[in-house]
Design a binder for these strands. Sequence first.
DNA 1: CGTAGCATGTAAGTTGTTACATGATTCG
DNA 2: CGAATCATGTAACAACTTACATGCTACG
Lengths: 195, 195
Amino acid sequence: MERVNRTRFAVLGVLSTGPQSGYDVKKFCEEVLAYFWRESYGQIYPLLRTLEAEGLIRKEKSELAEGDRRVAFVLTDSGRKELSEWLSGPVADQPPRNELLLKVFFSNLIGPAAVIPQVAAHEAAQQQLRQVLMGVLFSLDSEMDGDPQMPYWKMTVRLGLRICDARIEWCKETLKELQTIKEKSSMPSAAAMLE
Amino acid sequence: MERVNRTRFAVLGVLSTGPQSGYDVKKFCEEVLAYFWRESYGQIYPLLRTLEAEGLIRKEKSELAEGDRRVAFVLTDSGRKELSEWLSGPVADQPPRNELLLKVFFSNLIGPAAVIPQVAAHEAAQQQLRQVLMGVLFSLDSEMDGDPQMPYWKMTVRLGLRICDARIEWCKETLKELQTIKEKSSMPSAAAMLE
DNA sequence: CGTAGCATGTAAGTTGTTACATGATTCG
DNA sequence: CGAATCATGTAACAACTTACATGCTACG
């Protein structure tokens, strides 16, 4: 099974929104894609060279400043074509890795009292993420009104919100259950005593 | 920022459920953890040697067969201790990478008609996953009744189900919106004509 | 006897992160 | 002038996948 380099298409995608330098691509990831995608400089800069060598992107002739250190890249026609083809192809299934669930799964070893902080911290983090995503949704409305990209950007945020809510609900449910387990196990004779 | 080797703890965790060979660990991942964790042989076998050298696991004296090729490992006390400490520690935030959202985000390039199959396929996959998870939940009830690990195992499945449902709802909502965009863009003069 | 599953592993390659290095510019 | 930010990059390492190699055993 062939492996596809997703960083490659992430970078092409970012460049499809306009001319960008390596630094810009990183910022775009941090500020816009952060919820569902991240890239590091160690990936971006070498990749930009590769993509240029392959003719998928080219250096933009900066008509503006002379003292401008920025080296912005734009998609070439073949770059746009390759990106389009990838976008239209099926989504590769990514091997899932959920560290929280891994910990919960083996939690019998440490007992309910030790898991509770984990789940509580997750709930707090998700609540905070929720606030951020709501803010993004709001700012998309005000800042990108009329932009044809906006509907797609909003869709991604809305999935984020739905998953966020699902996680928060799960945390609440799970915290309750952990409390119950904790109480049961901490007084094993209580039930017997009541009989 | 120090990076932690999560494979290490995944393997220790699996061994905490009982003596296992490398082959068993792989099977456990495929059959039980598959929804949220996977490991490959290339990771497992070398790691088992490392863990043994570090004294976190040891070869179990197989009292049974002679012709048994299996080399089962068990946790040592220090292995159990290291696992417990990791379980009790905070969950490291993992850089998110959602290929579906990456595609949706840049979908303006290919237009709504080309995204619809992507989202539809995701919905179908999630519906199927939902069936599997419901089956797991059911089988946990019947096969692990009374096992102290069961509540924790069920918790993981329940988060899986919640996220699954969230994704399915999002797919439905998004497919409707994509249809709307598609109709609008395919007949740009229609609205004008009606006036 | 052949095929499927059991069982253990390795080699090569890719992907990705982290930490570091360097220097310019801007702004208080 | 000092700090923050802009801007570009590299080296070392860690993590991970894939494909391959090997041989055994059970079963139809």
